[in-house]
C-alpha cells in the first residue's frame, strides 16, 4: 500500500514538472501571439477581448479559488469604468492615474459589498451581491457625475506617463496588453502565495480551516476585495479603450456574462476564463451584424458546455488523456 502510494507521489511530482514545462511553452507561444496579433486582427476587438479576459480571470479568482459565486461583479467593472472616465475627463489626470482611481474605487466598493455578503454562503451570498449591485446600478442611473443614461462620453485617452500618445491605436493596444499581463501576474502571484494556499484550504474544507484558527471571513473578504480591484482594473481600462462609460457595464447582464465566460473556460483554471471570454467576445463581435440574435447562440453554447463540458473548455482539456499526459490536473 505504502509502496503504491510512494510510486503515486513520485509520478505526481514528475507530472508537476512536466506541467511547469508545458505551461512555460504555452506561455511563450501565447505571448508571441499577443504581441503580433494586431497585425492580423482588428486592435479594438483585441483590446475588448483582453479587458473581458482580465475581468473573467478576476471573477474566477473569487469563484474558482474561494468558491464564492458573486452575482454583482458588474459593480466593480462598470463602477471602475465610471471612476476612471470621470477622473480622466473631469480631473484631467493621466491614463495610468485614471485607471488607479478606478481600481481603488472598485476595491472600496468590494470592501463594502464584501462586508455585507461574505458571511453568507451559496444562494444567499449570490442574492446579496445581486441586490447590492442593483442598488449601485440605480445609483449610477441617478448620480450626476455618471450622466444617467447617456453615460460619460468622449473620454480622452491621454498620454501614458505624459509621454506616450494613447490615441495611437497601436500604442493603446500595447498599453492594454501591458495592463492585462500585469493583472495576470498579480492573479498568478495571489493564488500561488501563502495567502492563496489558505484560500485553497478554505475552499477544500472550511470547517477544518476554522478549527486550525483561520478567521475564514477575513480571508474571503481579502479575496473579494482583490477580485473587485482586478475587475476594476479591467473596467477602467475598457473605459479608456472605448472612451466612454455607460450603464451597460454596471447592469446585471454584465454580471451574468462574466459568469458565463468563466464557466465556459473552466472554473479554477488560471487560463480557462481567458478562453471563455475569447469565445463570448468573438461570438458577440462576429454575430453583431447577423440577423440572428447573439444571445441565443451564447445561450446554446452555454447549455452545451454545462451539459457536455462541465469542467469548461480548459478544464476538460486538463482532464483529458492528452492534458494528463502533459502534466495538467484539473481540480475544483
Amino acid at each position: 500500500m505504502s509502496d503504491v502510494m510512494h510510486t503515486t507521489s513520485t509520478a505526481r511530482t514528475g507530472r508537476s514538472a512536466t506541467a511547469s514545462r508545458t505551461y512555460a511553452a504555452f506561455l511563450g507561444i501565447g505571448l508571441v501571439l499577443l504581441i503580433v496579433a494586431p497585425l492580423f486582427f482588428y486592435p479594438i476587438f483585441l483590446m475588448k477581448l483582453l479587458c473581458f479576459a482580465l475581468f473573467a480571470c478576476a471573477f474566477n479568482l473569487l469563484l474558482g479559488y474561494t468558491g464564492l459565486l458573486s452575482f454583482g461583479h458588474a459593480t466593480f467593472f462598470g463602477g471602475a469604468a465610471y471612476f476612471t472616465a470621470h477622473a480622466v475627463k473631469e480631473w484631467a489626470v493621466t491614463p495610468e492615474i485614471g485607471i488607479l482611481v478606478g481600481v481603488l474605487g472598485a476595491a472600496a466598493l468590494g470592501l463594502i459589498m464584501g462586508f455585507f455578503a461574505i458571511r453568507r454562503q451559496g444562494i444567499y451570498f449570490a442574492m446579496i451581491t445581486l441586490a447590492l449591485a442593483q442598488m449601485f446600478f440605480f445609483f449610477c442611473l441617478q448620480a450626476e457625475f455618471t450622466h444617467g443614461e447617456d453615460g460619460i462620453q468622449s473620454v480622452p485617452r491621454g498620454h501614458l506617463f505624459g509621454l506616450v500618445d494613447l490615441n495611437d491605436t497601436t500604442s493603446m493596444y500595447y498599453f492594454v496588453l501591458g495592463v492585462f499581463l500585469i493583472g495576470m501576474i498579480v492573479i498568478w502571484r495571489f493564488i500561488n502565495s501563502p495567502f492563496g494556499m489558505i484560500l485553497k484550504s478554505i475552499r477544500e474544507n472550511e470547517q477544518r480551516a476554522i478549527s486550525l484558527g483561520y478567521s475564514v471571513a477575513r480571508y474571503k473578504l481579502g479575496a473579494f476585495v482583490m477580485s473587485a480591484a482586478l475587475a476594476g482594473l479591467a473596467g477602467g481600462t475598457k473605459a479608456l479603450v472605448f472612451q466612454f462609460a455607460t450603464l451597460t457595464d454596471v447592469g446585471w447582464q454584465m454580471s451574468g456574462e462574466v459568469i458565463l465566460m468563466t464557466l465556459l473556460g473552466g472554473i479554477g483554471t488560471l487560463i480557462g476564463p481567458i478562453f471563455g471570454a475569447g469565445l463570448v467576445v468573438t461570438l458577440q463581435n462576429y454575430l453583431a451584424t447577423s440577423q440572428f440574435p447573439v444571445t441565443i447562440i451564447t445561450g446554446v453554447v452555454f447549455m452545451v458546455c454545462v451539459l457536455v463540458f462541465r469542467r469548461g473548455i480548459i478544464g476538460e482539456f486538463y482532464a483529458s488523456r492528452l492534458g494528463r499526459r502533459l502534466g495538467f490536473e484539473h481540480r475544483r
Binding site: 502571484r189 495571489f190 500561488n192 502565495s193 501563502p194 495567502f195 492563496g196 494556499m197 489558505i198 484550504s201 480551516a209 486550525l212 484558527g213 483561520y214 481579502g222 482583490m226
Partner: peptide, 21 residues
C-alpha cells in the same frame, strides 16, 4: 504546512511566492 502557516506568521502574505512556505 497549512496548519503550520498561521503559527509561523505565513498566512496573509499574498505577495510572497508559494516557495516561501
Amino acid at each position: 504546512r497549512v496548519a503550520l502557516q498561521r503559527p509561523n506568521g505565513l498566512s496573509t502574505q499574498f505577495w510572497l511566492p508559494a516557495s516561501s512556505l
